[in-house]
Amino acid sequence: MKHLTAADREALTDRLRVIKRSVLEELRRTAGVDETSRDPQDHEVRSHADEAEAFRFAGLHCAEIEIDRARLKDVEEAQQRMAEGRYGICVDCGEDIPRERLVAQPIAVRCAACQAAFEAGHRR
């Protein structure tokens, strides 16, 4: 984290807060959609096509919630690393994650080279 200036750290802290707020708002919004989707008057199944569409919508809704929860976890972990002074250090090689990468991806846990290697290993 020594490679980041105080202004960098402050800007990244603010950015993480904004991302977290956005994800929490999205989770609140989708929770509202979930409550309204349970209303039997709005989603009366009339045919197999309607039933399939309702099933597809429910699956998509669950996937969106899981993505938001994972993103929230990533943001909170980044905030924890920031608080502990471990932010901006690659979890694989231990080198500094370049400032430009952190600005583009504030929740990054790996430098670009290690991230590419990690993704290549998971494709197999």
Rank of each mutant, 00 (worst) to 15 (best):
T30Y: 05
H122C: 02
E66C: 00
D74V: 03
R81C: 11
E76Y: 05
C90E: 05
A7T: 13
L24A: 10
H3I: 00
Q80P: 05
V33S: 11
E66I: 08
S47W: 04
V23D: 02
P98V: 01
D68V: 00
A52Q: 14
R71I: 08
C93G: 03
G88L: 03
I67H: 13
H48K: 15
F118S: 07
F55L: 15
R38M: 05
E84M: 05
G32N: 10
K2L: 08
A54T: 09
A78P: 02
A54Q: 13
C114T: 06
F57D: 14
D8H: 10
A31I: 04
C62S: 15
G59V: 06
Q115Y: 04
H3S: 05
P106V: 08
A63Y: 02
R29T: 11
V45D: 10
T13A: 15
A116L: 09
I107A: 00
D96R: 05
D14K: 11
A120P: 02
R46C: 02
D92A: 07
A7E: 15
Q79R: 14
A63W: 06
D34F: 14
G88C: 00
A54L: 13
P106A: 08
A112V: 10
R9E: 13
R99Y: 07
Y87A: 04
L12K: 04
T5P: 00
R9K: 15
E76T: 08
D42A: 09
E25N: 09
R15E: 11
R38T: 14
F55W: 14
E77F: 00
D39P: 03
L72T: 08
I19A: 10
L27E: 07
F55S: 15
D34G: 10
A120V: 08
E53G: 01
C90Q: 03
L16A: 04
R28G: 13
G32W: 04
L12M: 07
D68F: 09
A104S: 13
E53C: 04
I65W: 05
A117G: 03
R15M: 03
A49G: 08
H48N: 15
E44I: 06
